[in-house]
């Protein structure tokens, strides 16, 4: 058996929710420990590194703001992949993943907006400016809320999954707009400085805590996402059991 077909089979094995539950139960503690360790290290550097000569102590907001903004976009990418999984491959866990990611993404987006606002007040003198990056991020937040609202309104999980997948894919056009908004429109928000051509523009003193915190946030997302997916699977299981019980009660003429 070739290597790729093996990975494909592994992937297909994951489609079995029970197997996913077993695997994630084994994986989850490790991810939690890794998250805690990264957060400890990241916070240590974030709080002890030197302040910026221009921004002073406020530069420390960056270590929360930038990772949460990255995560807010990454969550949407995860949801987009899941939406493709739902529509194209009909992978049974894809809609679970998309649905579990929605509240997490909304929370990270809210965090990015709040910390950005707290950073903007001392730096720009205003809590909120309608510049391109902020506006497009606000749209992302609205998208998350709309998706959650749609999912709450639809009873049947498979139909909800299909419809929200379509919407997720429609909303994906916002992601490149967010990413490049600071380059296309020359606005108040500073352009991307960590990932760019010709190396990072940030000094190592700031880069180290930033990357550590980004790693910590990513691990946190993984842990939360896995946990939320497990909950979602269990929720569906409960619903299925209830249906089964109701059917049994109907055929038996009453509860046993």
């Amino acid at each position: 058996m070739s290597d790729t077909s093996l990975t494909i089979r592994r992937f297909a094995d994951l489609a079995n929710p029970t197997r996913f539950l077993a695997l994630s139960a084994r994986l989850l503690p490790w991810i939690c420990w890794l998250t805690a360790a990264l957060f400890g290290l990241g916070l240590f550097y974030a709080l002890t590194s030197a302040g910026d000569y221009q921004q002073g102590e406020t530069v420390r907001i960056m270590y929360v703001h930038v990772p949460s903004a990255w995560l807010a976009m990454m969550t949407y990418m995860v949801m987009t992949l899941s939406a493709l999984g739902t529509l194209v491959w009909r992978h049974p866990l894809a809609d679970v993943s998309a649905r579990a990611a929605m509240p997490i993404g909304a929370a990270f987006t809210a965090l990015a907006l709040v910390t950005g606002s707290l950073w903007g007040k001392p730096m720009w003198g205003a809590w909120w400016v309608w510049d391109a990056r902020l506006t497009s991020f606000f749209i992302l937040f609205l998208m998350y809320l709309g998706l959650i609202a749609l999912n709450r309104a639809l009873e049947d999980p498979t139909r909800a999954a299909r419809l929200s997948a379509i919407l997720i894919l429609l909303g994906f056009i916002n992601i490149p707009i967010i990413k490049f908004s600071v380059d296309w429109w020359n606005t108040l928000h500073q352009p991307a400085s960590v990932l760019r051509m010709g190396g990072s523009a940030i000094d190592g003193e700031f880069l180290r805590p930033l990357l550590l915190m980004a790693g910590a946030f990513t691990c946190l997302f993984l842990a939360l996402h896995l946990g939320a997916m497990r909950n979602e699977i269990l929720r569906r299981r409960v619903a299925a059991l209830r249906r089964q019980a109701a059917r049994g009660a109907l055929t038996a003429g009453g509860p046993a």
């Binding site: 102590e57 950073w119 001392p122």
Partner: peptide, 22 residues
């Protein structure tokens, strides 16, 4: 990190918000 720097309240508030949301 010094606690009497200007704007320290904003820094603390943003870390607090992050803690609360997480």
């Amino acid at each position: 990190m010094s606690l009497d720097a200007p704007h320290i309240g904003f820094v603390l508030a943003s870390y607090g918000a992050a803690l609360a949301i997480i």
